[in-house]
């Protein structure tokens, strides 16, 4: 097989390069500085995160990716204020993050819609907590439900919706309170491939039109490249920043770009970072201690 000649993922087309220069001039929304997190386990203290540095600019889309155990979920939970950290600091608009709050919206993998509330009331939840009156909250909620295309379902209960619809409600609910930043913890991980692709397109569409900065956790390389301006690659044990990749694929993104040289080059780089010694075909066979269990004279003696 001939090796496909790919450019380096560091080679950015001029338009992309120019865009990153401008992006980095935008105000910083989230700044994470020397962040560390230790756990106490029965086996002694473990370091989940160590010396994490990064920052996101206004209306940037940042993906966080890494092997399992790299602490990417812990990181986003710290950003949301749902978990404490041991050292360093997290600044949102220059203010230290202290506990959860509606300035940081969050979308979880498990939907977490309130099953006892209708779609509309779910979206109204945050607005009412923010002290909006019932009618005002209802009006805003309606707008957001329209925006995610679920106006026909505003009086449905979550269990009547499909996974993709639930996640759209969750996104609308998180955005309705107009947070500064949207944190998404593998939000599409439980969806089937088609729904997931549609949701990615929805999300990009929303992101384009709204003043929102997104931090998005995923373990899907394609998803990360397709969505992100920049990708924060973590490594495991302890969780540390391995590289902050500027995705060289031009914006706006389309599905056709999945096969563009920039896309493939970035993917190749991510592969080497995340699966450095990937199992090759030969050693998988060895690991499994495979023996032939089909007789040689069988009518289908070989699958080839």
């Amino acid at each position: 097989m001939t090796q496909l000649q790919l450019p380096s993922y560091l080679d950015q087309p001029p338009a992309v390069k120019d865009r990153f220069t401008r992006l980095k001039q935008r105000p910083v929304i989230l700044k994470v500085d020397a962040l560390g997190k230790q756990f106490d386990t029965p086996q002694g203290p473990t370091t989940a995160l160590q010396d994490i540095h990064f920052q996101t600019h206004r209306r940037e889309f940042l993906c966080v990716i890494g092997p399992s155990g790299c602490g990417k979920s812990t990181l986003i939970r710290i950003l949301a204020g749902l978990e404490t950290y041991s050292s360093g600091q997290v600044l949102l608009d220059g203010q230290a993050v202290n506990g959860p709050g509606s300035d940081r919206g969050m979308v979880f993998q498990g939907y977490t819609l309130f099953p006892w509330l209708t779609v509309k009331k779910n979206v109204m939840f945050g607005l009412e907590r923010a002290g909006k009156g019932r009618t005002a909250a209802e009006e805003v909620a309606r707008e957001w439900i329209n925006l995610v295309g679920l106006e026909k379902f505003e009086d449905s209960y979550p269990h009547q919706l499909s996974g993709g619809m639930k996640q759209r409600v969750a996104i609308a609910r998180a955005l309705a309170t107009q947070p500064r930043i949207l944190l998404m913890d593998e939000p599409f991980g439980a969806l089937d491939a088609q729904t997931r692709a549609r949701m990615q397109a929805y999300l990009l569409e929303i992101w384009k039109n709204i003043d929102i900065t997104i931090v998005f956790i995923t373990h899907d390389l394609d998803e990360a490249i397709y969505l992100a301006d920049r990708i924060l690659v973590l490594k495991a044990h302890p969780g540390e920043v391995q590289e902050l990749i500027e995705v060289p694929v031009p914006q706006p993104r389309t599905v056709e770009q999945f096969l563009s040289p920039e896309f493939l080059a970035t993917k190749k780089r991510l592969e080497t970072l995340i699966h450095p010694n990937r199992d090759t075909h030969e050693n998988v066979g060895e690991q499994l201690h495979m023996v032939r269990m089909v007789p040689l004279d069988d009518s289908v003696s070989s699958i080839f």
Partner: peptide
């Protein structure tokens, strides 16, 4: 489900 509580907290519930 504690996730519901977490979701509520990120929506500003105290």
């Amino acid at each position: 489900d504690p996730a519901l509580l977490e979701a509520a907290m990120t929506l500003g519930a105290k």
